[in-house]
Structures are given as C-alpha cells and as structure tokens.
Simulated scan of single mutants.
Amino acid sequence: MTRLRLHRETHNSDGTGWLRAAVLGANDGLISTASLVLGVAAAAADHRAVLIAAVAALLAGALSMAAGEYVSVSSQADAEHADLAREERELGEDPVGEQAELASIYESWGLRSETAAEVAAQLMTEDALAAHARDELGLSPTGRARPIQAALASAAAFIAGAAAPIIVVAVTPDAILVPALWGACLSALLMLGALAAYVGGANPWRAGIRVVFWGAVAMGITAFVGNVVGHAV
C-alpha cells in the first residue's frame, strides 16, 4: 500500500522579513554607537566621557528605534483594521457581489470561471471575511501588524548591535581604544552581513564586505569630524 507523503518545502525568502529587520537594527546600533564613540574619542575626550557617550547612544538609539517602529507599525495596523471593517460591512450589505468579486480574483489567477466560482462559494461558506482578507487585501494572520512586538524587537536588535562598541570601550585601555574599536566593529559588521546573506541564500562574502565598507565610511567620517572639532574647540 502506497502512502501519500506531504511535500513540504522551505525557501530562503521565508525568513527574510524578520531577518532583514533584525540585521538592520543591529547594524544601526553598531554603526551609530561606534561612530559616536570614535567621534568623541577622536576629540581627545577622556575614557569616562567616551563610555558615557556610548551608553547614552545605546539608550537614545534603542528608544528612538522602538518609538519609530511602534508609530510606523501602528499606522499599518490602523489601516489593516479599517480595511477589515469595510470588508466586513460590504459582506453584510452585498454578499453576492462580494462572492463574485472573490471569484473574479481567482479567475485572474488562472482558474476557469466555473472553478473560480466554486472555490469562491466554498470559501465564502467557510469564512468569508478570512477569504477576502487573505485573497483580496493580502492580509494573513501571521503577517498582521503588531506594534508592541515590532517596537520591542527593534529596540532589542539595536541594543545587541550597540553592545559591541560599549564592551570594547569598557575593557580597552585608552592607548589602543581607537584601533580596537575599528577592529571589533568592522569584524562584527562582517559577521552580521555574512550571516544575513547566508540565511537568505546569497553570497556571504559579498554581502559582508558591502556592510563593512559602508560601516567604515560612516565611522570614518564621524571620527574625522570629531578630530576636527576636538582640535578646533
């Protein structure tokens, strides 16, 4: 007796949404904090001032990321709720028209008219609002906007990235602080970029070098400005 086995596939793009957000937050935390620390250190500030600046950058950045993400995702959630409320109202007022609309969507996907009408009728019987939310509005339960979760995740990713330069400042003597910051932060950027590319199925080295290049540019410009200001003041 032959058993049917479910065919399950995993795709590299399945986890790119959360991964992109996490890498973006960590990169932001790492680059912004390291850049600020390098700028303050280049201005000939003492070790305590550099550490205070690093901790302040972590707190300000994490709170800013959380607030910005919360506002952004809250706006998305409001739009989703408004769309769902309108769809529910339309289903109550004109269920026949809404079923025809759903059938036309399936027909545009390549189903024959008869098949599309049959599928629409069955889905309308099961859960009309869920069918319209998914196939007309493009909303799914797993993809719904969650402002609080998004805010906490962004803040956590930022803190994880900003932790690297803070640890370096805390344990490194003044004499080698700047080169130690450069080495540690660029290495961390290389790993972040390579990890994101590896999980997404892309070339790890190319992505890692790209992240390192732009991180070095940002940190270099900030260090240069800090050096100029430090000598001018």
Rank of each mutant, 00 (worst) to 15 (best):
V71N: 02
A62R: 10
V23E: 11
A128T: 03
V233N: 02
S35P: 10
M219E: 01
R112M: 09
A43P: 08
G29A: 10
A133K: 03
R134E: 09
E90Y: 06
A43L: 10
G161S: 04
L58G: 02
S13W: 13
A157T: 07
D83L: 08
L129R: 07
G39L: 05
V178E: 08
A45V: 04
Y70L: 12
N12P: 05
N203Q: 13
I176P: 01
T10K: 14
E88H: 00
E114V: 09
Q122M: 09
M124A: 05
V211N: 15
D94I: 08
L152H: 11
V73E: 06
L30Y: 00
L195R: 10
S64Q: 00
M219G: 10
Q76Y: 08
I176R: 05
S74Q: 11
R86Y: 01
V37H: 03
E93M: 09
W109A: 08
D46A: 00
M219Q: 07
R8A: 14
L102M: 05
I148Y: 14
M124N: 03
V169S: 09
R5C: 14
M191A: 13
S74N: 04
V233F: 12
G29M: 07
E136C: 00
A62W: 08
A66D: 11
D127S: 08
R8T: 15
G215N: 11
L91H: 01
A21K: 07
R210T: 13
A153H: 04
G29Y: 01
W214R: 06
A60E: 11
F224M: 13
S32F: 02
L6V: 13
G138V: 01
Y70K: 06
D174F: 09
A128F: 12
A160C: 14
Y198A: 15
A62T: 04
A49L: 14
R20S: 09
A163P: 06
W182F: 09
L139N: 02
T2Q: 15
H7A: 14
A180L: 00
H231Q: 15
A41Y: 02
S75N: 14
A180Y: 12
A145E: 01
R5W: 15
P95A: 10
E126V: 07
D14Q: 01
L195Q: 09
L186H: 11
A21D: 00
L186D: 06
T142Y: 12
A163R: 04
A162G: 14
S35V: 00
A103D: 07
Q122P: 02
E90W: 02
A62F: 08
A53W: 10
G61Q: 10
